[in-house]
Every structure is written in structure tokens, then in C-alpha cells.
Amino acid sequence: MRTWLHRQTFRPDITVVVFFGVVAVFFYGSILWTGYMSLTRSTLIPNYNFAGFDQYIRLFTNQRWLVSCLNMVIFGVLYIVGTLAFGTLLSVFADRRIRAESLFRTIFLYPLAVSLIVTGLSWRWVLDPVNGLQGLVRGMGWESFTFDWLTDPDRAIYTLVIAGIWHSAGLIMVIILAGLRGVDDDLWKAIRMEGIPLWRAYLQVIFPGMRPVVTSCVVLLMSDVIRGYDLVIAMTKGGPGIATEMPAKFAVDYYFARVNLGLASAASISMLVLSLLLLAPYFYSEFRRRM
């Protein structure tokens, strides 16, 4: 090893070491630090006295945190399923030799270039019960029309789903479409030779064959869900009440506004553990594939 290092003038290893050092310190070092803090009594200022799992107990008896988690599950499931379904449908149709394909694609994809802040604000205005759609339809004479999900504590979470799908469906469309375009011509020929109807071809042959693509879509969307902060801030600020609070917002609030470092750290670590649990199967298969 030593001689090898000395012999080389061609040294990718230095770069690798520097890079890995940065990742290790900023990412994994930070995580360990946060993890440690979550086990302390830190509030306003860090306090490095070990306090066991107190913060986690406090966290998981905190009504707001529990609501946040529930909200994340509701939002996550609807958002992932909705975006996947909508994006896949769009990609299948876009693969059908439609006219003006690139125009449609441009329209479906542009939300991705728009920040989640602007996305959230725009949908907040569109869905605003007074000035938005509801007011509009009522103004046209349908006085009893009600679409006040944005201000309805039971439904506000669905408005986040709508905005989320709006933002990401194009992404899924593009990824799935790239997968569809990569399908071997011979496979389509075989499908025609066997006389397999189109819907069965997609459901039973094409999509099952694209499982890695679909999986990476799900992974992408999942990380959106767990990190989801901007959209909530722009659209509902967690309200009405705490109806749309999310774990990511909970953690940031407790770090910077309510300054309870220990609790915020516990929340962050819980989010991290959750994402690792959700992603573990994916990483495991990725890792095995590469070995």
C-alpha cells in the first residue's frame, strides 16, 4: 500500500479522501452531533449532559409532533401514489406518438423549475376561499358552491397534495418516459406477435420490466415528503391550527423559533431514522447490484 501510494503520480485518491472527508464531517459528523444532542437536556443553549431518551419520550408525547407525523403519512401516501399515477399516465400517453409532444412536455414539466415557495403561494391564491376558485364559481351564480379545503382543518392537507402533485408529476413523467423510450423495439414486436392488448402489455410486461425506474421514482418522492418544508411554509404555514404541520417544519421551528435544541434534534433524528428505514431496501438492492 505504502509503495503504491509513493509510486503514483496519478492520484485520484487524494481527491477522494478530501471529498470523503468533507462528506464525513458535514454529513455524518453532523448527524452524530445531532444524535448526541438529542440525548441531552439541551434547550436554548447546548447542554451536553446525557439525559437518555428523555427528549424522545417528550417528542412522542407531543401532540404537535404526532399530528405532524400523521400528516406526513397522509400527505406522503397521497402525494406518492397520486404523482406516480398521474405522471405514469402522462408518460404513457406521451409515448403514443401524440402531436405536439414537446409542447405538452414543456407544459407538464415547467412546474419543476418553479420553486416550492412560488408553487405554494400560487396554489394558496388559487384555492383561496374568498378570492380563489370558490369565490369565482359563486360569482358565476352557483351560490352554494364550496371549495374551502385550504381553510378546512380536515382537508387542508389535501391542498398540499394537489400542489405537490402539480409540482412533481412532470418529473415522474419524464423519468418514466425515458424508461419507456428505452424499451427494446423487439419487446413491443413480441407483444404484437402475441396479440397482447395494450393495457395488459403495460401493466404486465412493460412496467414490471421497469421496476428499477419506478423504484427510483418512489425513492425521489419519498425524500421529497420527508424533507417537505417549503411547500407547507408557503401554502399553509402549518395551519389552520396545526392541521398541516410536518416533521420537517417541527424540527426547524424547534431549532430556530422555539429554541429547544434537544427536542428538535430528537425530531431530526427520528426523521432520519424513518427515511433510512424507508430507503433501506432500496439501498440494499443497489449495494448488492454493485458488488
Partner: peptide
């Protein structure tokens, strides 16, 4: 793999440090 996991770490777990 560690780098890839890094892509999916919620920022919150790194913010304060």
C-alpha cells in the same frame, strides 16, 4: 453508498451542527 445515503438525509439532521 454512503454518499448516496447522504443525498437522502433530511437537512434537519445536519442543520444545527
Amino acid at each position: 453508498l454512503l454518499v448516496m445515503v447522504g443525498l437522502f438525509i433530511p437537512y434537519q439532521a445536519m442543520l444545527y451542527p
